[in-house]
């Protein structure tokens, strides 16, 4: 009896589709945040460029692992109308700033201390990467980081930069 019940549940499990919202193609929500340089920075400043938002935290291992690769991507494509923005999600930025002192990056770092922007972009994993095209639409949403993911980023960036 128990085994039959288990078989029914297993069959139902296979039949259920995965439910996931797909935000690609919709306009990227606008925001303004404080930056590590001191001034406020808003997404609207970068209209016309390909923008890659990377939501990260100093306590997140894969995020730290990804940063040097993001730095090299930024350096390579910055002159072609591409910009990378690191959005730090920590309410207290001390740990992040300490880490950046040891591993500096040249792309802008913004502080989302009250998680407003993280909520707007429905950040569902750490790290999360959003790539926005020149018209301001979200084109790529990538959750997490595993070594090799940077190749996917590069493919998307090369395509979008040519638009």
């Amino acid at each position: 009896m128990k085994n039959r019940l288990a078989a029914i549940i297993a069959a139902a499990a296979l039949a259920l589709p995965a439910l996931a919202a797909d935000p690609t193609g919709s306009p990227a929500p606008a925001f303004t945040l404080g930056s590590s340089a001191g001034s406020n920075v808003s997404l609207a400043q970068y209209k016309g460029q390909v923008v890659m938002l990377n939501f990260w935290a100093s306590w997140c291992g894969p995020c730290r692992q990804e940063m040097p690769l993001l730095e090299s991507i930024y350096k390579k494509y910055n002159r072609m109308g591409f910009t990378l923005i690191g959005v730090n999600v920590e309410p207290d930025s001390n740990a992040a700033n300490q880490w950046l002192k040891q591993t500096p990056v040249s792309f802008p770092i913004l502080y989302d201390k009250d998680s407003k922007v993280s909520k707007m972009y429905d950040v569902a994993g750490m790290p999360s990467t959003v790539i926005i095209d020149r018209t301001g639409k979200v084109r790529v949403l990538h959750r997490g980081y595993k070594p090799g993911d940077e190749n996917e980023y590069l493919d998307s960036i090369r395509t979008l930069v040519r638009e």
């Binding site: 128990k2 085994n3 019940l5 288990a6 078989a7 549940i9 297993a10 499990a13």
Partner: peptide, 8 residues
């Protein structure tokens, strides 16, 4: 049987 049910 019980564990199979939980797994599924």
């Amino acid at each position: 049987g019980a564990l199979l049910a939980v797994l599924a």
